[in-house]
Each structure stands twice: as C-alpha cells, then as structure tokens.
Simulated assay, not measured.
Amino acid sequence: MTIKMRSTYRILGYQPTVNPAWRQKLLTMGMLPGAVIEVVRVAPMGDPIEIRTRRVSLAVRQRDLSAIILEEVTG
C-alpha cells in the first residue's frame, strides 16, 4: 500500500508476521484496531513517515508501518 501525505487511515489490525515487541509498543501508544491515524508528512526519500493519532505523534519507517493493516478513510 502506498502511503499518501495528508491522508487519514483506519487501523484494521496487524500482519501475522509482525514482531510481537513492536506490536505491543504500538498498542501501548494507542494504535489499536479501529484507531484513526493521520499521515503528517513523508520524508523526501519516502522514509520515515510522520504519523499522528489522538495520543501520540511519531516517525516510523515504511517497513515498520507495513506491519499494520490500514484502510484509507475518505471524506
């Protein structure tokens, strides 16, 4: 999935291959299934990507973000 700048996505879940420690860290930061994230900006070379949820703003690598199953929210 191509992540677009200034887009909003809903977290549907996590890939089965996700590292359990990374998944737990994301859950602790409020990135729960059903939560909405906003892509604030993307670095010039595409990595990292700054995302924001209700509780936290963080920069993540494209590889780590691919462990999350996202659905684009329109409208």
Rank of each mutant, 00 (worst) to 15 (best):
V18S: 09
P44E: 08
S7D: 06
R54V: 06
G46A: 14
M45V: 11
V60A: 08
P16G: 10
L27G: 10
P44Q: 05
D47P: 04
R55D: 04
R6I: 05
T8G: 02
Y9E: 00
P48C: 02
I11L: 07
L12K: 14
R6L: 15
Q15G: 01
Y9K: 01
R10F: 02
R6Y: 11
M45T: 10
K25W: 05
S57Q: 11
M29A: 13
R10L: 04
V40C: 07
V42N: 04
V39C: 07
I49R: 05
V40K: 10
P33M: 00
M31A: 06
G46T: 14
A35K: 02
R55G: 00
I49E: 06
M31I: 05
G30T: 01
R10G: 03
V56Y: 06
G46Y: 13
E50K: 08
I11H: 07
R54M: 06
E38A: 13
E38V: 12
R54Y: 03
P16H: 11
P44N: 04
M29S: 10
E50W: 05
Q15D: 11
W22S: 13
Q24M: 07
K4H: 13
L58P: 00
R23W: 07
L27C: 11
L26D: 06
L27Q: 15
V42K: 10
R6F: 09
T17L: 09
R54C: 03
E38T: 15
I3L: 13
T28A: 12
L32K: 12
R55A: 03
P20T: 08
L12E: 14
A59H: 02
Y9M: 00
A43V: 06
T17M: 09
I37R: 04
V36W: 00
S57K: 08
P44D: 08
L26C: 15
P16L: 10
G34R: 03
